[in-house]
Computed example of a mutant assay.
Amino acid sequence: MRVVMFGYQTWGHRTLQALLDSGHEVVLAVTHPQSDHAYEKIWSDSVADLATEHGVPVLLRNRPDDDLLRELKEVDPDLIVCNNWRTWIPPEIIALPRHGILNVHDSLLPKYAGFSPLIWALINGEDEVGVTAHMMDAELDAGDIVVQRALPVGPADTVTDLFHRTVDLIAPIVHESLDLIASGRTDWTPQDRSQANFFHKRSVEDSNIDWTWTAEEIERLVRAQSDPYPNAFTYYKGERVRVLKASVSEGIYGGTPGRVFIKEGDGIVIVAGAEARRGRSRGLVIERVRTEDGTDLPADELFQKMGGYLTRQP
């Protein structure tokens, strides 16, 4: 098959490499220009560089336009394969390839369509994540499923752990999907749209800790914002503090959410949860932090005296 690839960052890079290894003819790679967005500066292996190394023509686009449509008609693809293409693809492009567009998405669709699915899934306490290859239609991440693979989420897993495991699924999923499509199969599995949800792109504010969340939820947020992602953060005495490691307290603590309360184990307990005033909540034990100057230190070196509050604003 003649294949065009649309993609960006490491997800797109891995997909292009899988296509190059597949034995099919890669006739064009379409990717985005480099970005300064915090979440797009990490896992930023270049699709353009990989394509150039293998003699594949490259087009840089922020979004599809008439020139791109003309280029696609000229290369006459049998299939377009997408992974981490960040903007809407119009119907005239979806309808152009003989076999349609195969999109590879790092969630177990129909859940966690949209952006940053691993982060949102970990925050929400899902017990598994995965990768789905589906045929694209007019609704984003809603087309019929070709191949889907799941992985368990462990109690100590960070989003960095989950990234490395799921990105390793891309190549086998792409290869299996191409084999199925090339064989003439079209009997794909429709998504159960009653289970669908769609998440927005994350920004720095989404990492700002809300101390009315339960300690369990905040601990998952910390793991979902592990290095090299922008860390979960809070403010202490007017300075931003990034939380690198945390756990849920053994004790039940009452009071006002955000209160720097008591030492427990290797960390400092912060009162958490909307029900904390009733004395029904566990606290968050902060164990390791990073200050604004980039210094990492144990939490008890920062919180040397009990009292005071962690807040969402300086």
Rank of each mutant, 00 (worst) to 15 (best):
M1V: 01
V4D: 13
F6M: 11
Y8L: 00
Q9Y: 06
G12T: 06
L16R: 01
Q17V: 02
L20M: 03
G23A: 15
T31E: 01
H32Q: 05
Q34M: 12
D36C: 08
A38P: 13
E40I: 00
W43T: 05
W43D: 07
S44T: 02
E53V: 13
E53D: 15
V56T: 08
V56P: 05
L59Y: 07
R61Q: 07
D65Q: 03
R70T: 11
E71A: 13
K73I: 15
K73Y: 15
N83K: 14
N84M: 04
W85N: 10
R86I: 13
P90G: 09
P90Q: 05
P91G: 09
I93L: 06
I94Y: 07
A95D: 15
A95S: 15
R98F: 03
R98V: 08
H99T: 09
V104D: 10
V104R: 07
D106V: 07
S107I: 03
L108D: 06
K111P: 11
G114P: 08
P117S: 02
W120Q: 06
I123W: 05
I123V: 10
G125V: 08
E126A: 06
E126M: 06
D127L: 11
E128R: 09
V129H: 00
V131T: 14
V131L: 15
A133V: 03
A133K: 01
M135K: 01
M135D: 04
D137C: 12
E139T: 15
E139D: 15
G143L: 03
G143M: 04
I145Q: 04
A150K: 01
L151P: 14
L151G: 14
L151M: 10
P152T: 12
G154A: 05
G154T: 05
A156S: 06
D157I: 02
V159T: 11
V159E: 09
L162N: 06
R165N: 05
V167I: 11
D168A: 11
P172Y: 10
P172V: 12
V174M: 02
E176C: 11
L180Q: 04
L180Y: 01
A182P: 04
A182H: 02
T186W: 09
D187C: 10
D192M: 01
A196Y: 11
A196D: 11
F199L: 04
N208T: 12
W211Y: 14
T212W: 06
T214P: 13
A215K: 01
E216I: 07
E219G: 03
V222F: 04
D227T: 14
P228M: 07
Y229L: 09
F233R: 00
G238I: 10
G238W: 07
G238H: 08
R240G: 14
V243Y: 00
V248I: 11
G254A: 06
G254R: 00
G255M: 02
G255Q: 03
T256Q: 12
T256A: 13
V260K: 03
F261A: 13
G265W: 05
I268W: 03
V269R: 00
V269M: 01
V269Q: 01
V271E: 10
A274L: 05
A274N: 08
A276V: 00
G279R: 02
R282C: 10
G283P: 00
E287Y: 03
R288D: 15
V289C: 02
R290N: 13
T291N: 13
E292Q: 04
E292G: 03
D293N: 14
D296N: 12
P298M: 13
P298T: 13
D300C: 12
F303Q: 02
M306Q: 06
G307L: 02
Y309F: 12
